[in-house]
Computed example of a mutant assay.
Amino acid sequence: MTDEQNTGNAEGFEPLTAEYERVRHSTDAAALSAYARRPLPDRADQAAFSRATALLEAVAGNLNTPVEDRIHLAEAMPFPNVLVKLSADPEPEVRRAVAANEDDKNWLVGRLTKDPVPEVRDAALTNPRTSWKMRLEGAQNPEVDAATLDFLAKLGVEIEPKAPAVLSSMVRRAVALNPNVTPATLARLAEDGSDEVRHAARRAIERRG
């Protein structure tokens, strides 16, 4: 390759750090939307793929990116660097989409089970990536809604039937003791195959009269 060709290739090239900062601070919503929706390069082109995913992190962290595009990234992206940015988004719908993304790392889903917005918390608790520790804490949380408790009450039975028996029964027992659990869910737990769950549910039914 000649020096002239080298010079030509270099012209117009923007280093990644410069483009990242430009995108991160951009106020051009249309351009940011285009970045968010642009198809990723083939993974075989490692340099181009890495550059594109790095720039998506900048797009995700820029609040001038339209909300619908941030939600799209939160739903579609499997990349931790992008999802971490979106998990701190001020828009609950963006965080809820991250919480429901099954490509999440379990520690990131776990963080969102503590979100102050119920819809975000509930999405995280029903994500199969959530750890058993977080599921148990969710089942014990009196602020968790009845629908999510009903989901947790099915773990190890109708949902994830091959789940560890001890862990799933601990979660179902905690659901039985949660004041938000519905009579219908309690009635089902009162017939649970686990003695501990069954007894907890029947005691709760008795207390409710």
Rank of each mutant, 00 (worst) to 15 (best):
E75A: 13
E4Q: 13
A58T: 12
L40M: 04
A147M: 12
N141E: 12
L152S: 11
D192P: 02
L40C: 05
L136F: 04
S87I: 12
K133V: 15
V67W: 07
D89M: 07
A34P: 04
P179T: 05
N127S: 01
L56E: 08
S33L: 09
V117P: 00
N62A: 01
I205Q: 04
S87F: 13
R129K: 09
S50P: 03
L112C: 00
L83D: 07
A201Q: 00
S87D: 11
S33A: 12
D42T: 10
E119M: 06
E158L: 13
D45S: 04
V98T: 02
S131A: 04
G138N: 06
V94D: 13
G12L: 06
D45Y: 02
D115F: 06
G12H: 09
L55K: 06
E158I: 07
L83A: 05
Q5I: 14
T27W: 11
A97Y: 07
P183W: 04
V84N: 12
V82C: 14
S194Q: 01
T126N: 06
T27A: 13
G209V: 11
E4R: 10
T17A: 14
Y20I: 10
A100H: 01
P92Q: 07
E93I: 08
A163E: 08
L189Y: 00
P78I: 10
P41N: 00
D115W: 05
D115V: 07
R208T: 08
P179I: 02
R43G: 01
T182P: 04
P15G: 14
V175P: 08
N81A: 15
R121V: 08
E137L: 11
N106E: 13
G193C: 00
A174W: 04
L112P: 02
A200K: 01
E102S: 04
R202N: 06
M170P: 11
L186A: 02
V166I: 14
R96T: 11
R172P: 10
V117Y: 03
Q140G: 09
L73C: 05
R198N: 06
F151C: 09
A47F: 15
P66N: 13
W132H: 05
A124R: 01
G12P: 02
I71Q: 11
M1S: 14
G8E: 15
I71H: 11
A200S: 00
G193T: 00
S33H: 03
S169D: 12
D122C: 07
K162Y: 14
D195Q: 06
L112N: 05
T185W: 08
V144T: 10
I205P: 03
I71E: 12
M134W: 13
D104S: 10
V144M: 14
T185F: 07
P116F: 05
H25Q: 14
K85W: 12
L63K: 12
A88C: 15
D42F: 02
N141M: 09
R43A: 02
R173F: 06
